[in-house]
Design a binder for these strands. Structure first.
Lengths: 190, 190, 190, 190
DNA sequence: TATGAATGAGACTTCATTCAT
DNA sequence: GATGAATGAAGTCTCATTCAT
């Protein structure tokens, strides 16, 4: 706590951000084979600097995930007020998939390492989860989404589509057609 | 041709099979980080034996993939004659997902290595594809699947669900609920 | 340029030198079979350190060769001014042979690897060549060496004697007697 | 003794010869990196067959050396009767160098392995040595070679030139020019 | 604080040699 | 006797992480 909250010096914060950004890029390029040295080079900092901010490979990747999620959640307040709850729900789903392009490699690495992703980032993680749930419930109340759709399968679908979108580099059209099927499956009345 | 078809000695074939089996298990357990030595130990053979049968890490993984697919395609002839084309289609989809539990790690590794998966196994690969297409068309003819569903998004969905099922070790119930949504999205009349 | 010339940190330079020295010793002891690990142990550094300085086995061997040659060329300026050009010529030849005691294993390895030795060290390599040629010409002008001796056969002889001296660990007396024959063959008037 | 003298079956002897020949070729091609498997393939026999005839890598290489030397010694009886003892001596020297094209790689390997070449083939080895000595003495008696040339330096020169000729693939002209210098150094009157 | 040199475990792969077929 | 499958030690090289500068 004490350590965590100490505000970083300006240059330190700048370095932290550069490393994070570089790590995303390198991960997207090299996949699981990404090396810390490559990240350092991309970020234009020394190896030691990375380890100052992220004591471990896993710590770094987790931070990326958290950053991504924070970016996602930024959209939520606006969506929660939206008139058309169905559009908000499906729109957020699509947003997440779009963002996933680089997200999966990260989750992958964490999962491979046997790390419980939720452990290190429960806060922001559950923020995303809450956001999804909120939008889901509202959409169901407006009758835009079937009543019997529950969070587990929703998250499963979301995860599946994100993974695939990233690995196979879906074109926008393919993404739309595929999500179309999934969304139809989410709608009521069968 | 002659060289390729020369039947392996009994013990050699046995070992080849053991390696393949062990590799699947280890891959499922350790993910992309799986090492050849671990496979050798699991198979109870020497490291060299693996390399005799599969000159390269990639060769081994590809062989696993091919074996999996061959196992899948075995089911097809029966399904193609089924009365209820819809049930056959959705059943095969489910089969594939079940089989995928260990399949993804393999595809992953190949993809990471920049290997064109289709290259090494075009035959059996396209056999699976053909089987899916066949069942799809029949199901559409019987009105069990919507007319506008095309192969690209079907394969995209299938891939997505397979990946996720493997990585997150879906319980049977979760699998059913998730596939339920997808299948509903595939059905006509919306 | 800028990157290349950046002076190494003191400890890094010390290590580089130690590796080079150790590699020469190990190569002399173990011949072509010398392993990187053996070099690391002899140098008292980690394996990784070697690879930091010499990204490849061949790079290391080439560096040794270059170092040797540089040491040789140091003698040249003095010799070029010598009164007795014949003594200078034959003296330099002998020097090279003495230095060759450990040099051949290196050239060997490079040759085996199909590496063009001249490629990586053209500068210092041709410096040696030039030095030899210079001393040869002066010796011929003074009548100490026969006029029809040309560089190709001179280098061939030099190479041959160096190889043999190294491999068979010539005693000083044997070296003198053998070089005596060769030198007589180089002298005029037959 | 008992084992050694048992005459081989016809096919066995044929195989032995094929292996020997193949080994020479492979050694010439791949140098020290030559592998037993490569020899087996070149010979068109199984790996086991090689090991039946030559229980060890070194044994095989030694056998090659012996075979080469036997071939050399065949020429000797004729030379020993020659009128011009100088021509006979220098001719034999040249012969050996020509034959050396492939011989050195073998000697190399043996030397690298710390094997005393003379040990395993003392008989034929000393036959060559005797032949050289014989021709040397006769040439000295006829005044074609200087009196003070002794075997040690003669063998040293021979070895040196053989090595170099093989490694650097001397062209005939270069060989003649180089041997010319050496031979001049061997002649009397300086 | 930032840097990057050093470390060494561990990955992949080769190859001499043994031994079941 | 011949074959080639199996073995595993050993080699080269990579990379996460530590620590002197």
């Amino acid at each position: 706590m004490t350590k965590e909250d100490k505000p970083l010096r300006a240059d330190a914060r700048r370095n932290r951000a550069r490393v994070l950004e570089a790590a995303e890029a390198v991960l997207a390029r090299d996949g699981v084979a990404a090396s810390m040295r490559a990240v350092a080079q991309e970020a234009g900092v020394g190896l030691g600097t990375i380890y100052r901010h992220f004591p471990t490979r896993e710590t770094l990747y987790e931070a990326i995930l958290v950053a991504r999620m924070e970016r996602l959640v930024e959209h939520v307040p606006a969506l929660r007020e939206a008139e058309d709850a169905g559009a908000a729900f499906f729109g957020f789903f699509t947003d997440i998939v779009d963002n996933a392009t680089r997200m999966r490699a990260v989750a992958d690495v964490l999962a491979d390492a046997g790390i419980d992703v939720k452990a290190g980032m429960s806060e922001v993680g559950s923020a995303v989860r809450s956001a999804i749930e909120l939008l889901l419930v509202r959409a169901q109340q407006q009758g835009a989404v079937r009543e019997d759709l529950r969070m587990p399968e929703l998250l499963a679908l979301l995860g599946a589509v994100c993974m695939a979108a990233e690995r196979h580099q879906w074109e926008p059209e393919l993404r739309d057609r595929t999500l179309g099927v999934v969304f139809d499956g989410c709608r009521p009345h069968h």
